[in-house]
């Protein structure tokens, strides 16, 4: 089995409407691809994504696994770090962070700590897992 990781740069969704963004991301997930979106959706879009996913569940499509990682949701007590994170958020907005959307047929579980995401697939795919981790780390590093 081949595992496809589809990278979606933020520029591809930047000028698309909320519904358009959700449809685009779900269409990729329905093709059994793991979507790596640069940046994140707005909070209302995240819940809308869940709602639309539920509306589209059928025999083939069982839903998604979703994870968003960005510096703003890491718990820090360091004031300087907080200031830095706020500055980045003001300057870059929703471009900061990475969103991973995996079809439930491929991704069994997503485990996330504030700083890392672990994807557990239905099949053992060590090389794909490594590729995904490297790509996610690279994207996070680029933003920092």
């Amino acid at each position: 089995m081949t595992l496809t990781l589809q990278f979606v740069p933020y520029s591809e969704i930047e000028h698309v409407s909320s519904i358009g963004r959700i449809k685009k991301l779900l269409a990729l997930a329905k093709q059994h691809k793991i979507v790596l979106l640069e940046g994140r959706l707005r909070k209302e879009e995240e819940i809308e994504l869940i709602k639309t996913t539920m509306e589209e569940i059928n025999k083939e499509f069982r839903g998604i696994e979703l994870a968003v990682i960005y510096p703003g949701n890491t718990v820090t007590h360091d004031l300087l770090q907080k200031l830095k994170v706020n500055m980045i958020s003001v300057l870059l907005g929703d471009r900061v962070g990475v969103t991973i959307i995996g079809p439930a047929s491929v991704v069994r579980k997503v485990k996330r700590d504030p700083d890392k995401i672990q994807l557990f697939t239905h099949h053992t795919l060590p090389s794909a897992g490594r590729r995904l981790a490297t790509l996610a780390n690279r994207l996070q590093g680029k933003r920092r």
């Binding site: 909070k43 209302e44 995240e46 869940i50 968003v68 485990k111 996330r112």
Partner: peptide
Amino acid sequence: KDPYSQVNITIIGNLAA
């Protein structure tokens, strides 16, 4: 269970919004 699940974060984020 792990509280850092995206569903929890999305629910709470939407309530805050």
